[in-house]
Simulated scan of single mutants.
Amino acid sequence: MVLEEKWPVLGRHNEAARWLRIWTDLGRAPRTIDAYARGLAEYLDRCERKGVDPVGATREHIAGHVRELSTRPSRRGANVVSIDSGSGLSNATIQQRLVPVRLFYDFLIEEGLRESNPVGRGRYTPGRRFGGHQRGLVPRLTRLPWIPTEAQWTAILQVAANEPIRNRVMLALAYDAALRREELCSLRTDDLDPAHRTLRVRAETTKGRRERIVPYSATAGVLLSSYLAHRASLTRARGGLFLSESHRNYAQPLTLWSWSKIVRRIALGAGVPRFSTHTTRHLCLTDLARAGWEIHEIAIFAGHRHTDSTIQYIHLSGRELADKLQKGMQQIHAWRIRQLAQLGGQAPEARS
């Protein structure tokens, strides 16, 4: 396996290699397999360093792995966990690294090599207090997604204005249709419907494997028309919509990594380093909520199976929530005053 070449520790553990091979044969996305391999290899490497047989590992060994993840120096530098922290991975990253370890032990249980899973998972248990929810091994922290301020967004647009037409239309569609990075880069020429200003997001390119049709604005349509004319100068062949113009990959579909580098360059040029390829999706869904869209409508637009996922993407500031509360309270206040006025106009006998 190519994964064993990248992470040799996987080749030294037959059950781990077999588990990954099964997931690969089941057609899981290459990036998912790669993430699983990385997380599991990281855990197996620690087991080897500590002289622990992973098949017989206990919850104590898993806890030690979690502690190492949360305290070791990060390659990205300081301030990973919190403002005053100089070490450790973020909570979300630790959760992500534990997923393949937990699934690996599920596989060992199915194979009859273990009786229990030392990682465990948060689950509903009838009869327990506080709603019957048993907490997972690592508490899950849910933070609000970051979105740029109006000034930051303006700075990003000013830098993007000097970008080639391809990059500008990609940024426009990423926001307009709330596209994930892979959905955007995987668009093909036959996914477009210019007559109705819609595009098709194919199931195989989505995170939830659900196809959807999404609209884009007239402004994005003008940019797209200009880009299609430019694309025709590169090639007239159908296929990937957004093409590379580098000498090495000329007229080949633009890769995810190339788009990430482009967005990173724009972010640094605008002085907004937190801006990423996923920020436009957060911003679009938040703007839809601000415009009064119902949560289930936003979920359909975003391609979410459940509205719980949609809620995590929407960022409403405290001021916006306060405005909604004030408006709602004004209506209730007016209703109560009307009731008092009606009671004041009744005859004494009616009120007694």
Rank of each mutant, 00 (worst) to 15 (best):
His65Pro: 02
His65Met: 02
Arg67Trp: 12
Arg67Ala: 15
Arg67Val: 11
Glu68Tyr: 13
Glu68Leu: 12
Glu68Cys: 05
Glu68Val: 09
Leu69Tyr: 05
Thr71Trp: 02
Thr71Met: 05
Thr71Pro: 04
Arg72His: 12
Pro73Phe: 07
Pro73Ala: 07
Ser74Asn: 04
Arg75Gly: 06
Arg76Asn: 04
Arg76Lys: 08
Ala78Ile: 00
Asn79Gly: 02
Asn79Ser: 02
Val80Leu: 03
Val80Ala: 01
Val81Asn: 03
Ser82Tyr: 06
Ile83Asp: 00
Ile83Ala: 04
Asp84Phe: 14
Asp84Arg: 14
Asp84Ser: 14
Ser85Thr: 07
Ser85Phe: 05
Gly86Asn: 09
Gly86Ala: 06
Gly88Thr: 04
Gly88Ile: 04
Leu89Pro: 03
Leu89Ile: 02
Leu89Thr: 03
Ser90Arg: 03
Ala92Tyr: 07
Ala92Thr: 11
Thr93Asn: 10
Gln95Thr: 06
Gln95Asn: 10
Gln95Ile: 04
Gln96Met: 14
Gln96Gly: 06
Gln96Arg: 14
Arg97Gly: 08
Pro100Thr: 08
Pro100Gln: 08
Val101Gln: 02
Val101Met: 05
Val101Thr: 02
Val101Asp: 01
Arg102Asp: 04
Leu103Ala: 09
Asp106Leu: 09
Asp106Glu: 15
Asp106Thr: 12
Phe107Met: 11
Phe107Val: 05
Leu108Pro: 03
Ile109Val: 15
Ile109Tyr: 10
Gly112Asn: 11
Gly112His: 13
Gly112Tyr: 10
Leu113Thr: 12
Leu113Gly: 13
Leu113Ile: 13
Arg114Tyr: 07
Glu115Asp: 12
Glu115Thr: 13
Glu115Val: 12
Ser116Tyr: 13
Ser116Pro: 04
Asn117Ile: 10
Asn117His: 10
Asn117Phe: 11
Pro118Gly: 08
Pro118Ser: 09
Pro118Thr: 08
Val119Trp: 01
Gly120Arg: 01
Gly120Pro: 02
Arg121Asn: 06
Arg121Ser: 08
Arg123Ser: 10
Tyr124Leu: 14
Thr125Met: 15
Thr125Phe: 14
Thr125Ser: 13
Pro126Ile: 09
Gly127Met: 09
Arg128Trp: 14
Arg128Glu: 15
Arg129Gly: 13
Arg129Asp: 14
Arg129Asn: 12
Phe130His: 15
Phe130Glu: 15
Gly131Gln: 12
Gly131Ile: 09
Gly132Ser: 12
His133Pro: 00
Gln134Tyr: 10
Arg135Tyr: 08
Gly136His: 00
Leu137Ala: 05
Leu137Met: 10
Pro139Val: 07
Pro139Gly: 03
Arg140Cys: 02
Arg140Lys: 12
Leu141Pro: 00
Leu141Thr: 07
Leu141Gly: 03
Leu141Met: 06
Thr142Trp: 01
